[in-house]
Simulated assay, not measured.
Amino acid sequence: MENLNKRVKHTLQREIEAVQSLQKVIGEDFEKAILLIKNRTGKIVITGVGKSGFIGMKMAATLVSLGHTAHFMHPVEALHGDTGLVSDGDVIIAFSFSGGTTEINRIVSYLKKTFTVSIVAITGKCDSPLATQSDACIEVPVVEEGCPLNLAPMASTTASLVIADLIASALTSPDSFDRKHFAKLHPGGSLGLQLMQVSEIMLTGKLMPLVREETPMQDVLKEMSEKKRGITGVQSGDDKLVGIITDGDVRRFLMKHSTINKKVARDAMTTHPKTIQEEETVEGALCAMKEYKVSNLFVVNSDDKLVGVIHMRTILDEYVV
């Protein structure tokens, strides 16, 4: 066990050192690479093989999620047709820690001859064959991998992954890509819940179940049945939401009065209904429903005007199930 702990701590320390050494990376060469990528007229195409390929895939996914047009291209597949992905004006980001990977150098050489592209190398050696073919080189300054045999890439892959994130950060300005843009690209899952606003998924207009205070109960039931939400809002003459009627309200009303003849919405509604603001997040709406123990919330704007309704089932279908 003592030897195990020693190996693990050795690996951890080498990876910490690798990340810390990246402070040296943020300089003239890094800025040159960023300018090449920013000033491109085409896409960002990322390539790498082996573990560097996985880092390239992750980088492409990160860039796309931040609104950049980026693709991963496997160098071997590229030599068999996938170069159709590349166009003039693209920037090619090539990962190879050794800088001597045959597949990477071959595809980079081909792309330079065939297309008008810029090459950014991310490598451990800026005097390597890959670096000499590139327009900009970002060096990964890793001396020791941290592998017990010092053979398997560990510290270098960690450092390369961080460099990929540094590039993504440098390319993404909050002034041009904010939370609303991010939400647009992440409509599902927990991110969608946190970022999407109620106004973006609520039912509006004629899809809302609504009646007036004086609406006969027979018509109230018809509205609830047609809209299939198990609820209807009740509006006053000035269009304010003054109450709601749920399936439960109808059952309780019938147990008390036996009939709905000559009864109107005002007689059966629950007053002071819970509402939610249209700019609230979907996650906030779900939390409110759980707190109030309801499955629907009517939505109001900043002037307290009724603008929509949101149902728990919609949220669960869209983001959870």
Rank of each mutant, 00 (worst) to 15 (best):
V45W: 02
K180N: 13
M202N: 08
V91E: 10
I122M: 12
S21Q: 03
C287D: 14
M1W: 07
L221C: 13
L161M: 14
V198R: 06
E103F: 04
E77W: 02
G89L: 09
S52G: 03
T158M: 05
I276G: 14
H74P: 01
Q197T: 12
V309G: 08
V300G: 15
H272G: 07
L316N: 05
A265Y: 06
R179P: 13
E28H: 12
T204M: 09
T41R: 15
K24C: 07
Q23V: 15
V198C: 02
H181G: 14
L161I: 15
K43Q: 13
G50D: 14
L79D: 07
Q194M: 13
K113V: 01
A152P: 09
L111G: 10
T102N: 11
R229G: 07
D135F: 01
M1I: 07
K256A: 03
K227G: 15
L85G: 07
S176R: 08
A159W: 14
K305T: 04
N5Y: 02
V108K: 11
I315M: 01
T47W: 12
T47E: 08
I93V: 05
R266A: 04
S199F: 04
Q13W: 05
A168M: 04
G146V: 04
Q235A: 11
M217L: 11
L161K: 06
M217E: 08
S169C: 15
M73K: 01
H71T: 13
S96W: 07
G89D: 05
L161T: 13
I244S: 06
A70H: 00
K263S: 10
I34A: 13
P216L: 02
D238L: 11
V234T: 11
Q218Y: 04
H181M: 14
K240Q: 13
K24I: 02
M208C: 08
Q235M: 11
V299I: 01
H181K: 13
F95P: 00
P129A: 05
A33V: 15
T41A: 10
P153S: 00
E280R: 04
V220N: 06
A61W: 02
E139M: 05
V64A: 15
F182M: 10
K9Q: 14
T123D: 15
D267W: 02
P273E: 08
R212N: 02
P129H: 01
R106P: 02
M59S: 13
F298L: 07
E213D: 00
S225T: 13
R40W: 01
A136R: 00
H311F: 08
H80V: 04
A285Q: 05
N296T: 14
L286N: 12
T314R: 01
V8R: 14
F30I: 13
L210N: 03
K180G: 09
E200Y: 00
F54Q: 06
V307Q: 05
L149D: 02
K184H: 06
K24Y: 06
A121M: 06
H272L: 04
F182P: 11
E318D: 06
V120P: 03
